[in-house]
């Protein structure tokens, strides 16, 4: 490659979005949002996480990669957990705000209580090992054992056991 071509590569604007990527986006976006939503508990924030996940995939991986969907699912869980951890310090205030945005609960006392519960649940998630928290989020977002195994690089036969352990650990964290 000669000098001009190399310089062009470094100065030219990026090409348009490949159709294969748009297809992937349409196919997987709702599920990526659902996984992130389950973790962060806030719909707007979940969509922000999904945007970051797709941008990250777009930069690093071809749209037709065979691992695209599992990669996106795992990235959604891990990115959302990172957001949750960074938010943990101010979690109660955020949770109350998120609840106000997301739901229409007529009773303020009930709303506050629900927000507190949700905040505690999210805090408990951040205290779990990453894999356990991701397992729970993926499972309760509706992924099959096969899809969870592919996303987290685990054997499908071990998902049931690992999930039960994660659930036990989660219950323990919520009640402590």
């Amino acid at each position: 490659m000669e000098v001009a071509e190399r310089l062009r590569l470094r100065t030219a604007p990026g090409p348009g979005m490949p159709p294969a990527f748009e297809d992937l986006f349409r196919r997987e976006y709702p599920r990526v949002v659902a996984i992130a939503h389950r973790i962060v508990g806030d719909a707007d924030e979940a969509e922000d996480v999904a945007q970051d996940v797709f941008v990250s995939f777009y930069r690093k991986h071809p749209a037709d990669a065979h691992y695209a969907a599992p990669w996106l699912h795992a990235a959604a869980a891990h990115t959302a957990l990172n957001v949750l951890r960074s938010r943990a310090r101010r979690r109660t205030r955020d949770a109350v705000e998120a609840l106000r945005r997301d739901t229409a609960v007529p009773d303020p006392a009930q709303a506050a209580e629900a927000a507190e519960t949700r905040s505690e649940v999210r805090a408990a998630l951040t205290r779990l090992p990453d894999r356990s928290a991701a397992l729970l989020a993926l499972r309760y977002s509706g992924l099959s054992y096969e899809e969870i195994a592919a996303a987290l690089g685990l054997r499908q036969s071990s998902i049931g056991t690992l999930l039960r352990r994660a659930e036990d650990a989660f219950r323990k964290e919520v009640t402590t």
């Binding site: 349409r26 976006y29 719909a43 945007q51 997301d102 649940v121 989660f170």
Partner: peptide
């Protein structure tokens, strides 16, 4: 415990 309100996802707007 992990339930969240239904999100109204607009995939085309997100794209």
């Amino acid at each position: 415990m992990l339930s969240v309100p239904d999100a109204n996802v607009d995939t085309e707007r997100a794209l």
